[in-house]
Every structure is written in C-alpha cells, then in structure tokens.
Design a protein around this nucleic acid. Structure first.
Length: 442
RNA sequence: GCGAGUGUAGCUCAGCUGGUAGAGCAUCACGUUGCCAACGUGAUUGUCGACGGUUCGAAUCCGUUCACUCGCUCCA
C-alpha cells in the first residue's frame, strides 16, 4: 500500500492515531461525545507545529499582516450582524415516508412533502448551528450568548483597534488562530467535520479597485504554501472554483485534498467584498470605513479571506503520509515484515529527531546529546528495546531522523543519522549535528 | 435527521446452539543482542460500549440508549 495512491483506509488512520497518541475520542470513558476529539501527546506536537508554520508564513515573515487573539464569546450582535443567527436558525421538518428534509420557509405548503406529495411530516424543529450559552448566572434570553462559529468576525470587529495600534495602512491583513464551534447536524469522517475545531484565518483589507488581483495573489500564495511547505502535489490537491456563491462573496475557491473518504475542503479563499464591514457598521452604528490620508478619500475596506481548517490539515497530512512498506517477503512460515511509516514533512513531524543509544550502556552520553538537541528540535529519547525496534517505532510516528549514539561515538565524537524514508544512514560529527538537522528540517 | 453495519485488553480480532473471557501484536522488567519488527524468561492490561429486561445463570437472547463507519441529507 502506498500513500501516493491514496488508498489508505480511514480505519488505519484512526487506529494509528489512537494507538500512538495522536487523536483520542473526547470523553471516551463515558462513551464518547459525538463530534469532539482530543489531541494526544504526539498529536498536540504536530498540531502546534502546523499552527507555528502557518503563523510564521502568514504573520511573522510579513510586514503587512498583524496577529490577533480574540475571545470565543462575543457580543451577540456580532452574530446578528454577520447573518449567522438568522441564517443558522432554519425551521425544518422531515418526511416520514420518503425521508426528505425540508426547510419550512422553502415549502409551498408546510403540510405537504414537495418530494413525494405525502403529508406524513414530522413537527417543525429549529436547526440552529450556533452553540448557545449564557453569560452571567442567569439563564434567560437576555443573557444568551454564542460561541463563535468562525474566527473571522472578531477580526472585522477589531479592525480599527488593530489598524491604529499597529499603524497599518491599507492594504493589510489580520490573522487569527482559534477555536470555532458549530452544531453540525451530522459530524462525520473522524476529525474532518467536528463540532469544535480550530481555524486559521487571515482577513486582508484592501480597496475594491484591484481587489481581484489581491484575491488571485492570495490564492497563489496559499497553493504555493501547500505545495512547498507541506508537499501536497497535484495528485493530492485540487482547486475547486465556486460557481454558486454565498450571499457575502464575490469570488471563492476551495483548496481540496484527497482524503480516504474522497475530496474534501481544506481551505477557502473568499472575496467577501464589503459585506462584513458594512454589516458591522450598520449594526453597531460605528464607522467602519477607512480614511486614506494620502488622497483624503474614505472607503469601506474590501476583504479577501483565507480560511484554513487546522484539524483538516492535520488529517490530510496523516492521510498523505501513511504508508505501509514491505521490507521482507513472507517465507518459511514467517509473516511478511511490513513497516508502517508516516512520511510527514519534517517541519510538522511530532518528533523531528529521536536520540537513541545503541546500547543501554551508552545511555548517559546519549542523554547528554538529547538534552542539547532538545532545545532546538522536537526530540525524543528512547533506550527501550533493540535499535531496529526503536527505528520502527519512530517510523510509525513520522520521525524523519534517528540519531544513534554508538560505541565509536565516544572516541570519534560522531553519530549515525538514520533517514526515515530511505532507511539509509550517514555519519555526522556531533559538533555539526545541529547545523545538519537545521538544514534538513527547514 | 433517515437507512445499513459495527462495538470484547492500548491495537487487530476469536469466543459454536446462554454456564461467569482468550490469541497475536503492543507495553514493561531481566537476560541476551550491538544499526533495522531478533531471541529467551516473566509481568501488566478487560464496568465484553451503557442502561434495563428475560433466565438459576447473559459477552451471547430481547428492548432502549451512546459512539464509530458507510450511503442519503446537511455543510449559511
């Protein structure tokens, strides 16, 4: 089986994720809770690494994007203005005969199924995809608030605060990584569609004139990011242009990847026009326009959005990386030797270098090396079991480099570096090791 | 939300028509080995998804429920 053919089953990924501590079901001892997942020790390392990579590319290495970390709970008006409260609150009913589901407001006759003509319908029920809570000890309508359904709305709301504090002029962007919540009707496909998830969003504010160029620029940037940083090739990734646009959008593309269950959206790049900013101006009564001091013109900023699902990126990486390689054919009644290996990019691998003493007798020296490298890379130290066993363990969690400290190391001050993908080894001087790994990883 | 399937150790699964739970792998220890899952010896691990019912007795039969997978539906 090969990951490039992408015939990895979901079961294998879920099983590995659980076994090796990438992803667990939330609240498992209570039977689990639908649509919620926990990231275990290796999972959280990898998740953070993806965040760091995105943040570095989108914020730290750019002068024209600022960061923000806003609250999950905002003033309820935010969601009224964004349209979430109205659009997410459809009354729906099901036909008991043909199983079709209808929005009440879209039906000609709310008592007759438009699909089969039957009248055996369930009572209308409200489908609100926003998660509700109460602010303060009183649980009534006046104190109702919502967990954010997307991270971008607080960015719009904070536009002027960020702009002024950072002394930014148009065009510039604001980026944020954080949790978002949706009462998905049907959580599916492991972590792909869950009810609590992490978004990495960047809203780029610009003038309307030339905004399609900005849209295309970000589209190219984001595709380049997946190709160059995460190694997503054209067999694995495709661009889906929307022909049917949402009410707020002027143009939209999705970046999709091939999951075991089919193509799925990873990132949306949307031209949102002035919709959000205008909505918040109308709703708050505060001016959201931007004054261009160079020409004295006031404009409502146009927004280009790049919106990534972090959990989906994580899952896509696992699906792409998963491989089972036959090392030895079955013979003499012995089963074939199959190596399970995650061919993850080094930049996101949960462990980047494993430090392994060839023998337990070398533990102390190896540990010393580990303590040094641990400051610069995500490292793990392992003495248990044979060296081959330890290599395989690291393969399974995608560790790109195993550093083996052997009996010669004490004398020649060098170690063996074993490569995950080729299983080949080379001798590297301990003094060069940090530089060596840095070159390989970045 | 509808339909189908599944749920037994960390993972993969066995457990025939009801008699009170097993294997392989994994994990750990000791010995051995010294660069690719070795080997030997020993050890740990289970509310048999949950609740209720039938029965002298339920992992096994029945009901309900929860979770996961697949197909519809949904995804502003």
């Amino acid at each position: 089986m090969s990951a490039t053919e992408n015939n990895v089953s979901m079961e294998k990924i879920v099983s590995l994720a659980k076994r090796r501590g990438f992803v667990f079901q939330s609240s498992e001892i209570y039977g689990g809770i639908n649509g919620f997942w926990d990231y275990g020790p290796y999972g959280v390392r990898m998740k953070r690494a993806i965040e760091q990579l995105w943040w570095r590319e989108m914020v730290e290495t750019r002068d024209d994007v600022e960061g923000l970390d806003s609250t999950i709970i905002c003033h309820p008006q935010v969601w009224k203005a964004s349209g979430h409260l109205d659009q997410f609150s459809d009354e729906m009913c099901d036909c008991r005969d043909c199983k079709a589901r209808h929005r009440i407001d879209m039906m000609e006759d709310p008592k007759v199924c438009s699909n089969c003509g039957g009248s055996n319908l369930t009572e209308p029920r409200e489908f609100n995809l926003m998660m509700k809570t109460f602010v303060g000890p009183v649980s009534d309508d006046e104190h109702t608030a919502y967990l954010r359904a997307e991270t971008c709305q607080p960015i719009f709301v904070d536009f002027h605060n960020v702009r002024i504090a950072a002394r930014q002029k148009l065009p510039f962007g604001i980026a944020q990584i954080g949790k978002a919540f949706r009462n998905e009707i049907n959580p599916r496909n492991f972590t792909f569609r869950s009810r609590e998830f992490t978004q990495m969003e960047m809203e780029f504010f610009c003038e309307d004139e030339g905004s399609m160029d900005v849209f295309n620029y970000w589209k190219e940037q984001r595709i380049k990011y997946y190709r160059e940083k995460l190694g997503f090739d054209d067999d694995f990734m495709r661009i889906h242009e929307h022909d049917k646009l949402a009410h707020y959008a002027k143009a939209a593309v999705d970046i999709e990847v091939k999951f075991p269950f089919g193509w799925g959206e990873l990132e949306g790049i949307h031209h949102r026009g002035v919709w959000d900013m205008s909505q918040h101006e109308g709703s708050s009564g505060k001016e959201m326009q931007y004054m261009d001091h160079d020409n004295g013109r006031k404009i409502m900023p146009t927004v280009i959005e790049t919106s990534v699902g972090l959990d989906r990126t994580f899952l896509a990486l696992l699906a792409k990386a998963y491989d089972e390689e036959v090392i030895g054919e079955a013979k003499d009644g012995k089963a074939a030797d199959i190596r399970t290996v995650l061919r993850l990019p080094a930049v996101v691998a949960p462990i980047q270098a494993a430090i392994l003493p060839l023998s337990k007798k070398l533990s102390e020296n190896a540990k010393e090396l580990y303590n040094k490298l641990n400051r610069y890379f995500r490292c793990e130290f392992d003495v248990t079991g044979s060296i081959g066993k330890r290599y395989r363990r690291q393969d399974e969690i995608g560790t790109p480099y195993c550093v083996t400290f052997d009996f010669d190391s004490v004398d020649d001050n060098a170690v063996t570096v074993r490569h995950r993908d080729s299983m080949e080894q080379e001798r590297v001087a301990i003094t060069d090791l940090r530089d060596y790994l840095e070159k390989q990883i970045d």
